[in-house]
Design a protein around this nucleic acid. Structure first.
Lengths: 302, 302
DNA sequence: CCGGATTACGCGAACCGTAACAATG
DNA sequence: CATTGTTACGGTTCGCGTAATCCGG
């Protein structure tokens, strides 16, 4: 059975044409190297070097072996390097799940920071509702999920959760919306209009309703519930719908003035959690990714 | 230091998801395999399998390693196969030297037979004069040479030579050449015309001159000495030059009637040798190639 | 005679097998 | 309780190092 070490030794001798020098490079003594090569030749039933005169030279069979084992050795060097990087979590492929809002708000920045200066790392992002993402996490189709805190099951014994800083949210409307002219805006002023947003957890609606003293959460009428932020943005920009989401999620539309924030205090601040499976062995790069997520979600001056 | 065996074991477990089955495939006992994997995990400082529930599953790091070591393992399988073929000489790359005439006469047939039904074999053919080819053989730029016997040095201690069957040669001219009409043609009848051929050894000319009782070999006037058979063929087809070469070398032109053989008995039969370097370790495929050369040069009914 | 390769021999680590133990379902 | 994986232990092999020998320039 062929071993990588013997191949390495063979290559060193072939390249240097000198057993002594090759032995130094292999960090073994000359006799040991001599033995290694001899055993290799016996194992292969092929004479690899012509030792009749110095310097020793490759035989025809030796040249063949050299050429044919070149890729194998370079592959092995690559793998060893990859492994050393893997141990420190600086290489690998992660499968990350995000909700629509979190992906649109901070997903890009997280991935930019994370992949940007880590050439060995790559990611696969799945956008779905938190319950779906959690299912995928459970059967290890995902390595990490950024999900809505409100959608987490009460008993989180099998999840390693970490609450992320509050993402400031609010109510948004198109430029020129009737409500923008109104002074001292209250939440009740919004109720005549219908709402748009991405995946409203019923708990959130209940909280809102309770907070503003509504009898029934159905007084907050949902017109569009969509996982695609672009759809929501365009729908709200061209109608009187009110968008409930985070500021970061529509920062471009806010910057262009296409969409404006309504000056009303409402509790739609997003609470997100970075979630991994406690019962699974984490990818070595996970701690690093968590650190990047913390940095990217840290509240900063606007 | 990574070993191929450990990687193989790892792959077997990863593919079967079952230590017992993998152990059977690896032809070792289950505890031995268990140890092998454990040592690998310790060496890499990475947990590769999650053993908390059955069947055991790959961890994220294990998936990475599996993906990244895939090519390495398949390369190693390829190499082992190549080596087993190499031992029996059924794979490799040979550098063959031939003279212009021998290459044009039998080179194609030899290579067709040799490479044709041996998918692992390939060749590099150099066409040059015998002395040049012998030099290349000496410094191992070539593995085998088919050269002119007459050009071999007298002392052939460092060459392994093998005479090939005589290749019938003769004098050839264009269709409609004046000599073709003459009855009872003799060699002296040819002397008014000049000759063409590929690399005339002076010994050959001396022999011819002596054989036909000429005072000076310069009575045989050489018009063209060229290593390119196509050049000679076309030159002779369009002039009254007489071509000295083997029949096989111009068999196509003979078949089309473009060139005709002069009915004169002359001793330009080619004597070729298959030559290798005795002082070098031969390529494993050499004996096989020699056999093919013998077959291809064996005299056959025209 | 010197640099460089091989042979001879002893030791330690690695690896496998057997047997006993532990955990999962 | 049966299947499957781990731990413990003994024996063999493999690979390296030291020392002595051999060989080519």
């Amino acid at each position: 059975m062929l071993t990588l070490n013997q191949l390495r030794h063979f290559h060193l001798v072939a390249e240097t044409g000198n057993f002594a020098q090759a032995a130094r490079l292999a960090h073994i003594t000359q006799p040991a190297l001599s033995n290694s090569i001899r055993l290799l030749e016996e194992k292969l039933a092929l004479q690899l070097f012509d030792r009749r005169d110095r310097p020793v030279r490759l035989t025809a069979a030796g040249r063949e072996l050299l050429a044919r084992s070149q890729t194998l050795l370079s592959e092995s060097r690559n793998l060893e390097k990859s492994i050393s990087y893997m141990s420190e979590g600086s290489v690998g492929h992660l499968r990350i799940g995000m909700t629509a809002v979190s992906s649109a708000s901070i997903g890009g920045e997280i991935l930019a920071r994370w992949c940007g200066d880590r050439p060995g790392l790559s990611a696969d992002v799945t956008v779905a509702n938190t319950p779906i993402l959690l299912d995928m996490l459970r059967d290890e189709t995902l390595d990490l999920v950024i999900g809505e805190a409100r959608d987490l099951p009460k008993s989180t014994t099998d999840f390693e959760t970490e609450a992320l800083p509050l993402q400031s949210g609010g109510a948004f409307c198109r430029d020129g919306h009737p409500l923008l002219g109104k002074a001292a805006l209250e939440f009740s002023d919004l109720l005549p209009y219908r709402f748009a947003g991405s995946h409203f957890p019923t708990v959130l609606l209940d909280e809102l309703a309770q907070h503003f003293g509504l009898k029934d959460r159905r007084e907050i009428r949902i017109a569009i519930d969509c996982d695609n932020i672009a759809v929501l943005r365009d729908a709200v920009a061209n109608s009187d719908l009110i968008l409930l989401t985070t500021r970061a999620c529509i920062r471009n539309a806010l910057a262009t003035g296409q969409i404006r924030q309504l000056p009303v205090e409402i509790d739609v601040n997003a609470v997100w959690q970075a979630i991994t499976l406690k019962t699974s062995v984490p990818h070595p790069a996970i701690p690093d990714l968590r650190e990047v997520i913390r940095e990217a979600t840290r509240p900063r001056p606007a």
